[in-house]
């Protein structure tokens, strides 16, 4: 048994990493296969409906669209791994650059949203759990019920009406760009991040509450109280760390989804994020963009889950046994 060594930890990380790689391979195959069988010929879209069959065939050959499935797949993955970007059909620029500029909006937006979510959810959940079945708890539960039932675009519109139209504290949408106006860019993300975060806070708060209630019934909480620890030590040191373990899972899922872009909220606030990029790219049959962005979205989810697994190991010493 002995003290927790470096080796089991390293083994845990390696196993999780191997799982990550395997998942990415499966995801890339799926993404590629789906787009491969999807109707809509990129060559036709580029050249228009009046193109001759000969020019279509030439372009297909140029784009490699006439080659077998696995050759095309290997090409795509090979280029990705070598860092060679495909060219966007619609935007006429390297997909990597396109994605990087959009990720600079979506990434901070997602992180900010989760920051809001956690900042509201965890204290609310603890508060509700400590006042179980009393008016304070019922108030939190009612509030989160409303949060669960609110569509985020509608909340976004309300926020715009209140803070932009009425109070004039924020611009109603748009994004000035980090290089041009860092502070203005951050400000532009606040309202949409708040809209995204508060909706996610609802489910996180309920989860924190129920997880906290489970933990507060545990024998070791009684032990902590029997030792004469202060109530805040009992709650924040002995209970919270245990209670956060299931919360981490959902938090990771939410962050992964947000990194994949919040299509609706980006449209409400005119933010040039990943969600809007993929939305436009699908409409334009911009296959190279769609392929890379969808893979990136899936990879974001898989990668965040990997991070959550690592976080588990940091929070829960028993994890190395699994």
């Amino acid at each position: 048994m002995g003290p927790p060594g470096l080796f089991p930890m390293l083994r845990y990380v390696l196993i999780k990493f191997a799982t990550l790689v395997l998942l990415l391979i499966l995801v890339s195959l799926t993404v590629f296969a789906v787009l491969f069988v999807l109707p809509g010929d990129p060559a036709q879209i580029i050249l228009g409906i009046h193109a001759t069959p000969e020019s279509l065939a030439r372009l297909r050959a140029e784009l490699g669209l006439d080659r077998p499935f696995f050759t095309q797949y290997a090409d795509w993955v090979g280029n990705l791994l070598l860092g060679r970007s495909a060219l966007s059909i619609h935007y006429k620029m390297p997909v990597f650059e396109l994605v990087a500029s959009r990720l600079a909006v979506t990434g901070p937006l997602a992180l900010l949203a989760m920051l809001f979510a956690v900042a509201f959810a965890v204290p609310l959940g603890i508060y509700a759990a400590r006042h179980q079945n009393r008016p304070q708890d019922l108030a939190v539960m009612a509030f989160t019920q409303v949060g669960l039932a609110t569509p985020e675009f509608w909340l976004g519109i309300l926020l715009v009406l209140l803070f932009s139209v009425e109070l004039n504290w924020f611009a109603a949408g748009g994004f000035p760009g980090w290089a041009a106006d860092p502070l203005g860019s951050l400000k532009a993300l606040l309202l949409p991040a708040f809209a995204l975060g508060i909706i996610r806070a609802a489910i996180l708060a309920r989860l924190t509450r129920s997880s906290m209630l489970d933990v507060l019934r545990e024998d070791y909480i009684r032990t902590a109280r029997a030792k004469g620890l202060r109530e805040r030590t009992v709650i924040y040191v002995h209970a919270l760390r245990n209670a956060l373990i299931p919360v981490l899972t959902i938090l990771g899922l939410q962050l992964g989804q947000l990194l994949a872009g919040a299509i609706i909220i980006e449209n409400v606030f005119f933010l040039p994020g990943l969600g809007r990029l993929v939305f436009t790219a699908i409409g334009m049959r911009d296959l190279p963009v769609v392929r890379d962005v969808v893979l990136l979205m899936a990879a974001a989810v898989v990668f965040v889950n990997f991070l959550v697994d690592l976080a588990y190991a940091a929070v829960d010493p028993r994890i190395e046994l699994h």
Partner: peptide, 15 residues
């Protein structure tokens, strides 16, 4: 001070 019946669950697993 008090000690309890269940040593398996009476200690905090994460500390």
């Amino acid at each position: 001070a008090m000690i309890f019946q269940e040593p398996m669950t009476s200690l905090n697993p994460v500390l």
